[in-house]
């Protein structure tokens, strides 16, 4: 060695020591296990829409229900309507020339989170529908804080068929996505669910699932938790399902670790922890929405109190 210059490398040694720390930090950041933000509902939202049957026959009347969450306790209005994929416009657009607005209903400041409407599946679907289920009906539910949605204001006014207001309403509802471009994001929630139509009779067609929510040992969920407590919740489902079967998890305070519990495997009983909020709460709502992956949906909820930990 002609030049003993290796000692000059010493100033760089701290960087070498820093390297494992950097890698460790990267690793730890990937192992975050806190509440999943998607499980916390903190604004007005149409959380679930259900129907008496997820797969209907042409001409069959189906009851539709929407569950609207309003964590801030504000007054809101809600409406629902349906569109079909068989025409250029929504079903009600064709009905604006006369007759009832089947499938369309609006309500101002509902007292209950459940909002109901009903629809007769168009009988003419029978001309082309077979036993193969087709997603032909789009069920929209719109919840808005008062004054934010022109369509909802119009619907609440129940315009006479053929009136300019009715035509204006029909134009708005005919293209819900386009309508949303004109609405504010805050205080407005639009949800879409597709209903399938087939000629299959009840018993042969897809039905809504049944599911259960328990804690370890099959015990029911507790009525009280303490702040910051972790509650392991077990989920199971009965009946047919496909690979997308799951229970989706929501709450208005605290949070679940995962957004859902996968139930594709009938033999598995997945457990997902719920993390209670850090502050005492008189009322915490847990909402469970089970989907069987074939269009069937069921809803469950649980209310509990969170006490200050001693």
């Amino acid at each position: 060695m002609t030049h003993a210059q290796l000692p000059l490398l010493r100033p760089l040694r701290p960087l070498l020591r820093l390297l494992p720390a950097l890698i460790l930090a990267a690793g730890l950041s990937a192992c975050n296990s806190g509440p999943n933000e998607e499980t916390l509902v903190d604004e007005l939202r149409v959380l679930a829409t259900l129907s008496t049957t997820p797969e209907a026959q042409p001409g069959e009347r189906v009851d539709l229900e929407a569950f609207v969450v309003d964590p801030k306790g504000e007054s809101y209005d809600v409406m629902s309507w349906v569109c079909t994929t068989t025409g250029e416009d929504c079903l009600e657009a064709a009905a604006t020339g006369g007759g009832a607005w089947d499938g369309l209903r609006a309500e101002a400041s509902p007292a209950q989170p459940w909002f109901s409407s009903s629809l007769q599946v168009p009988p003419f679907f029978a001309e082309f529908v077979t036993e193969e289920p087709l997603p032909l009906i789009f069920h929209y539910t719109l919840a808005c804080l008062p004054g934010r949605c022109a369509a909802l204001e119009l619907a609440l006014a129940e315009p006479a068929a053929g009136s300019p207001e009715a035509e204006q309403l029909a134009a708005l509802l005919a293209d819900p996505t386009e309508m949303m471009t004109t609405l504010p994001m805050q205080g407005v929630s639009l949800a879409l669910r597709r209903l399938t139509v087939s000629t299959r009779a009840p018993g042969e067609r897809v039905d809504n699932p049944t599911f259960s929510v328990t804690t370890e040992g099959g015990a029911p969920l507790p009525a009280e938790l303490t702040t910051g407590e972790e509650l392991g919740i077990l989920f199971s489902m009965e009946g047919p399902r496909d690979e997308d079967a799951a229970v989706w998890l929501y709450t208005d305070k605290g949070g679940f670790r995962d957004p859902n519990a996968g139930l594709a495997d009938p033999d598995e009983v997945p457990k997902v922890p719920y993390y209670a909020p850090d502050k005492a709460q008189e009322l915490v709502n847990l909402w469970f929405i089970a989907v069987n992956g074939d269009g069937g949906v069921s809803f469950g909820s649980h209310a509990l109190r969170v006490n200050e930990a001693e």
């Binding site: 939202r45 471009t181 407005v188 879409l192 957004p259 929405i289 269009g295």
Partner: peptide, 18 residues
């Protein structure tokens, strides 16, 4: 993204583009 639509099948928000 100027708004969103909640899709019940995928349980996710779908963007409405401006």
């Amino acid at each position: 993204v100027v708004n969103r639509v909640y899709d019940m099948e995928s349980r996710s928000f779908q963007p409405v583009y401006g």
